[in-house]
């Protein structure tokens, strides 16, 4: 006689160790909640407050990035958003790309571009000089003239 498992009987564990897919799933939700707050704040400060999109120029960004608060804010935004986006794209690649070699190539490109952009973005935030030597005084932040 054939026996059938009761419904919702957990499947036998075939793998030991950390369940990376589960933590990826958790990451999407945890980072998502934080990103809602960070991105709404980012959009408000840049597009709603002040003069909106027209206010954004080198001096505006320099004013923000010379403040440790915005350095940390933008670093969190960069890392949380890019990893969230790359992991989402990984999900889509796994769903829609059926050829194994194409899938591997796309996942590699996704991972490589993510690492490069995380390093680039972090370096930009922490090596940024708001008052570059020899820059046009009209283009830099007003506090540069008092240096």
């Amino acid at each position: 006689m054939t026996t059938i498992d009761a419904p919702r009987t957990s499947a036998a564990r075939t793998r030991r160790g950390v369940n990376l897919e589960k933590w990826g799933w958790m990451y999407m939700r945890a980072s998502g909640v934080v990103l809602v707050v960070l991105i709404f704040g980012h959009l408000f400060v840049n597009l709603v407050a002040g003069e909106g999109v027209k206010q954004i120029d080198f001096a505006f960004v320099a004013g923000k990035l010379s403040d440790p608060f915005w350095q940390v804010y933008d670093t969190l935004l960069l890392w949380l958003a890019l990893i969230h986006g790359a992991n989402g794209m990984r999900t889509l690649v796994n769903d829609y790309v059926t050829k194994p070699r194409v899938r591997s190539a796309l996942l590699f490109a996704l991972g490589a571009s993510t690492v490069v952009l995380l390093i680039l973005g972090t370096l930009v935030i922490y090596t940024f000089d708001p008052c570059p030597v020899g820059a046009d005084p009209e283009l830099v932040a007003s506090f540069c003239s008092s240096l």
Partner: peptide, 16 residues
């Protein structure tokens, strides 16, 4: 957006 913001590290003119 990460690439265009990285232009602040190049020059004020390039970013603007």
């Amino acid at each position: 957006h990460i690439l265009d913001t990285a232009l602040v590290r190049v020059s004020p003119e390039a970013y603007n």
